[in-house]
Write a protein that binds this DNA or RNA. Structure first.
Length: 418
DNA sequence: TCTGGGGTCCTAGGACCC
DNA sequence: TCTGGGGTCCTAGGACCC
């Protein structure tokens, strides 16, 4: 048996923890740069606000119904996520953190009343973190996902649902839209609709060979999982990332190489930080920048350049240097750039690195000491305390005007109780 | 005016081998 | 006229996830 614990409307729920006055009110959290709604309270969903709706399009609804609007506050969400994970870890020998707001629990071999157990996990999360969590338990991950969605639909389940009897599974799948099944995306839905397949149950009734042929291995796994056969592995060990990307849209379009370079230097620094945190090195540094694709009154361009480093590296200077060189090589003036990013590729373990015959060992050592000093200063005095000259003020330019305080991660933002 | 960011897995097809 | 058979590795792009 597997459990899926899914935090309800997670970002909005995090904001409400420290703003109890927002309970029962429509609330949304915006994507980076205050672009789109990415988290919505039930009240906001009821007003017709859809996932990914741009703010300017829903402005009338927001104003008319007094929707509370927040910029995203990832330090807060990350910390609340960690707290929920701490609770979950007490309920299973192995936990797979699937995303910032979801985790699978491996319950195999446990001998408990699973329905009561699911409800207990949910209640404990609520009590200790003030985050509402839906817990579904089922014989496969895909069915556990469906069970957790049932919790959100039916409050009488009290946050926990155990889905295992074949007749219950059939009943649930018969009214479960196929497009809401985990692993079935938009492209597959198009095909399925043209075949008259509308529910998860219809999908399970397709022939094995047909599914295998039309939807390949991933679709076949989903088919089996819906039929109660677990096919998707449990991955509780965190593998280092094989690629690392830091990219942003800009609040104001960029028309000067110097401005773009400064942003790219900051992206490169952040990417290198992530790389170093997972103790990896990379051999590829790619940079891209593009104009605003929604503007048909301005010329469009997409520039990118990939640099192969002479040796795998986790050195801030090497990575920023490669990124800035890439920037210069694809830069074209006369365009207004709206978004850019840095991608690190061909990632390997730092410890497995063999020094090259042609590298200067003492220079490498000095460089590593510099990078390490930057990490130490950041962790002791805060990120951005020291930075490279080409990073400018060290900030990535995007709007976040409606951001809530960093209640749990900055001493200065801790809520005061009178 | 205004439209997110960061990943993984799988497959087909090209290039290459004997 | 007729044009083998079997394999690996790599990459780009598709599809999917939150």
């Amino acid at each position: 048996m597997y459990a899926l614990a899914d935090c309800n409307n997670f970002f909005v729920s995090c904001e409400r923890v420290f703003r109890p006055d927002l309970a029962g009110r429509p609330v949304i959290v915006l994507s980076n740069n205050d672009g789109c709604a990415v988290s919505r309270s039930n009240e906001a969903k009821a007003l017709g606000i859809k996932m990914g709706d741009p703010l300017f399009k829903i402005r009338p609804i927001v104003d008319r119904y007094g929707v509370a609007v927040f910029s995203s506050n990832f330090p807060l969400y990350g910390d609340m996520s960690r707290r929920v994970q701490e609770v979950l870890a007490e309920y299973a020998p192995a936990v797979e953190v699937y995303s910032i707001d979801e985790a699978f629990l491996d319950l195999n071999g446990m001998d408990v009343d699973f329905d009561a157990y699911a409800k207990q996990i949910s209640a404990d999360c609520w009590k200790r973190t003030s985050i509402p969590v839906s817990v579904g338990i089922a014989p496969s991950k895909t069915l556990a996902k469906i069970a957790s969605k049932l919790c959100k639909k039916y409050p009488k389940l009290k946050g926990g649902c155990f889905l295992h009897r074949p007749e219950d599974i059939e009943k649930v799948l018969r009214s479960f839209p196929v497009e809401d099944v985990w692993g079935i995306g938009r492209r597959s839905v198009k095909k399925l609709v043209s075949m008259g397949i509308r529910t998860a149950w219809d999908y399970t009734q397709l022939g094995e060979l047909q599914v295998r042929k039309m939807f390949n291995l991933p679709g076949y796994r989903t088919w089996r999982e819906l039929r109660g056969v677990p096919c998707i592995g449990f991955e509780d060990v965190i593998e280092p990332k094989q690629s690392i990307c830091v990219s942003r849209s800009f609040a104001h379009e960029i028309t000067a190489l110097a401005d773009l370079s400064q942003q790219v230097a900051n992206f490169a620094y952040s990417a290198a930080e992530k790389l170093r945190r997972q103790k990896s090195v990379c051999q590829e540094v790619a940079v891209f920048a593009l104009t605003n694709r929604f503007r048909d009154d301005a010329p469009q361009t997409f520039g990118s350049h990939l640099t192969v480093l002479p040796n795998p590296s986790d050195d801030y200077r090497a990575i920023i240097g490669a990124a800035l060189g890439a920037c210069r090589s694809f830069w074209r003036s006369g365009y207004a750039y709206k978004k850019a990013g840095v991608l690190l590729g061909r990632i390997g373990q730092a410890s497995a690195q063999v020094p090259s015959l042609f590298e200067d060992a003492s220079e490498l050592e000095r460089s590593e000491r510099l990078s390490r000093a930057l990490d130490d200063i950041s962790s002791a005095y805060g990120r951005g305390t020291v930075r490279f000259g080409n990073q400018g003020d060290g900030r990535i330019r995007s709007s976040c005007e409606r951001q809530s305080p960093h209640y749990t991660t900055l001493w200065s933002d801790i809520p005061k109780v009178r």
